[in-house]
């Protein structure tokens, strides 16, 4: 049962990721990316990472994709007359991506990943455990990331502000 769910979600995420790259209208790319993020959240739930699934939906589908949609609408890019790279460069892009895939798969086959085939405990993804890790072992990076957010916020406002002259 879980296996079929995994295959269904995997096929959905691969198809939606391909449609992000190859759809003509930028708005459709954004919407397919939202679908892809929801399927990845489904994978997190299958992997018993419930906290991360909820955070993923809130941060990506709720905040980042709204930003993307807002910018696509604001810049009025929702038209199909986008220039494409010439055919040789597009062909080379697909070939080099495929070669990267082959290289990574070959590297993966020669390593021993089967050491981790234990049946996972269900409670390592709960808010309690992740929060304990976050506020004991990783408390300094957590605080530094808040400074990163503050500086990113100030930087975004300064960059997007209109010049007076």
């Amino acid at each position: 049962m879980t296996q079929y769910l995994f295959y269904l979600l995997a096929a959905l995420s691969v198809i939606s990721a391909l449609l992000v790259v190859f759809s003509k209208v930028p708005m459709y790319s954004v919407l397919w990316l939202v679908v892809c993020f929801f399927t990845i959240a489904g994978h997190y739930i299958i992997l018993n990472a419930q906290f991360l699934a909820i955070v993923h939906i809130i941060v990506y589908a709720g905040a980042i994709m709204v930003l993307f949609l807002f910018v696509v609408m604001l810049l009025n890019l929702n038209k199909e007359n986008e220039q494409h790279k010439n055919n040789w460069i597009r062909f080379a892009a697909v070939v080099s991506g495929g070669i990267l895939f082959l290289t990574l798969i070959a590297a993966m086959r020669s390593t021993e990943v089967l050491a981790y085939n234990l049946p996972p405990k269900s409670e390592i993804g709960f808010v309690q455990n992740v929060g304990m890790k976050l506020f004991t072992d990783f408390v300094l990076p957590f605080e530094i990331s808040s400074i990163l957010f503050l500086s990113a916020m100030i930087g975004a406002v300064v960059l997007a502000k209109k010049d007076k002259n």
């Binding site: 995420s13 691969v14 990721a17 391909l18 992000v20 790259v21 930028p26 790319s29 993307f68 910018v71 696509v72 810049l75 890019l77 986008e82 220039q83 494409h84 790279k85 460069i89 597009r90 080379a92 892009a93 697909v94 080099s96 991506g97 495929g98 990267l100 895939f101 990574l104």
Partner: peptide, 17 residues
Amino acid sequence: LFCIGVIGVLFRRNAII
């Protein structure tokens, strides 16, 4: 999925994509 992302970066000309 990672390779699809790489192909997209090389394939498209729109900076938002």
